[in-house]
Design a protein around this nucleic acid. Sequence first.
DNA 1: ATGAAAGCGCTAACAG
DNA 2: CTGTTAGCGCTTTCAT
Lengths: 342, 342
Amino acid sequence: MARRLNLEEIGRRAGVSRSTVSRVVNDDPNVSLKTKKRVEAVITETGYRPHAAARSLALNSTDVLGLVIPSAVETLFADPYFGRLIFGISRATNEVQMTLTLFLFGDVPDEESIISRVVSPGLVDGVIVTATTMGDPLIDYLRGAEMPFVVIGRPDDGGPVFSVDVDNRGGARAAALHLANLGRRRMALISAPANTSAGVDRTSGFLDGLAESDLDLEGRIREGDWTEGSGRAAMEELLADQPDAVFAASDRMAVGAMSAIRAAGLRCPEDVGVVSFDGLIAPDQTSPPLTSVVQPVRKVGERAVKLLKAVVDDTVALPECIVFPTELAVGGSCGALPEKVL
Amino acid sequence: MARRLNLEEIGRRAGVSRSTVSRVVNDDPNVSLKTKKRVEAVITETGYRPHAAARSLALNSTDVLGLVIPSAVETLFADPYFGRLIFGISRATNEVQMTLTLFLFGDVPDEESIISRVVSPGLVDGVIVTATTMGDPLIDYLRGAEMPFVVIGRPDDGGPVFSVDVDNRGGARAAALHLANLGRRRMALISAPANTSAGVDRTSGFLDGLAESDLDLEGRIREGDWTEGSGRAAMEELLADQPDAVFAASDRMAVGAMSAIRAAGLRCPEDVGVVSFDGLIAPDQTSPPLTSVVQPVRKVGERAVKLLKAVVDDTVALPECIVFPTELAVGGSCGALPEKVL
DNA sequence: ATGAAAGCGCTAACAG
DNA sequence: CTGTTAGCGCTTTCAT
């Protein structure tokens, strides 16, 4: 009695061939309504599910997408950015009826074994790569392996790739202009790692904005590592130069900076205005609410999935670089709002 | 020339049969060193990788584990708990040379389609289920589907299941005793959702501790939803009853509570002591540092993976319920430390 | 130590 | 509309 439940067996029970059952399962119109009903009855009754691996083998397509995050240290996951991104990507993957697999490789040396799994045929149809550092060999490796992929972020240099990014440079520039318009003159910068494209772009964008306002950092710059702790440490150092405003390249670092400002007995925004990048901190989570350059994290994830699917299905011609605009959301931390609103 | 790269093709190039190549790939000792070298050379040269789906079909095993998170709303991902858990599980999965796939189903109605994918054969060998609510039909469904699974948390009622949990009750009890020992008398509770086992257990544990100290909540209890905002709102209400201490069932909610206390012009720990559950907030992220019941999130994830693998490999007999101890980490928020340390 | 052949469960081209 | 058949790429007896 304990026969394996496969097309053949379902067919046997319904009195048809396995092809017919396959047609029913795949909604092929070439099945009489009567037969279809009978087969469907057997399927529900037995709880039959097609064997995913067998189907993948026959179709040469898995309906699985991979999300690759190199340099996935634990602190990375403390940043709300990744939670949101994974959430958005997962949602979008479900929407296109696919499955998401996660490849995180941290400092451990399992890196090689993971990468070889990523590119092995029959496991995933394509991958989304994010959080790469500039010059990461992974990109070239994927290219060589003929594995379809989409990069979230700005691909550093070389050959054309499909990518989805946000306008980091424009957003950071807007932050600088905003602070300058509010009359801030001694600005400081807590930058993101210079080996990431977001880090580079946010820094150059902020400098763009300062230059347009005839301002200069005059050395008031410290590099953080995305964490709250690094933001706090950076701010502590910067305070020695008495800045009247600071731009932190991520929300988390801004939160750290604000706590350093407060700990130094200074007020935000009166003494030091703060603007950050991400827009992931709810207004009621900091006091005053953070003014931040909002990036559409979830949209980025969704778009990456759609783009990857198009690449996999080969329904897209040239490598596309999609860039989403960012938007400055004004809270109270920059000093733009009247006191009572804060 | 563009032949598909498979065992046959590698064999052709190396002048051996596909069986021999298979043996080489799988480290079968029955291959002469000479042949082995030759075949390996061809493999490296061509960049051959075995086809995962084909292998899964032949072996009836995928080497893929699934992580299922029902009720995965976006706010859930703002909690550092899940980032840590996913990280730990991912690490452990890599360690056993397997791949992790993620099944998140939120409020969208793709739920059914995802569930059916979870249990379809040939996709994953087993799944880890977490963040379930009590009485979640998913558990019964998995049981019926013969899909090996391990629950993170306490399985509510029914049949025996494999599970990994932390001692929520004991940890919460310790929090109550600690506060009572410090002389706090009017305690309040910000509980976690009552439809989760962690919520229930932490509440009853805290009540245990109070009872042992001859104390009572006298109605000073509000239910939060794990978020910082809910913690703040709960605390605002509770302050009307002038508690001298509060236990928040999660770090995030405690952070919200602390901000409500400060906003009301009260001091922590002098006016209101705060103890939380999770131990995921770094000491320098709140002021004063949170006193918290630490749960070993990463260990839980790792243990769940190992247990699941054992279940899949059928190397474990009876359903095991593993419970990790928790530990109270004393910061300054409960008032246990002298002022200058804060 | 190596090769031949069967089979994992599915799809799809072909025949009727 | 339905059944037959030949693979998809791999593992695994069974010969040799």
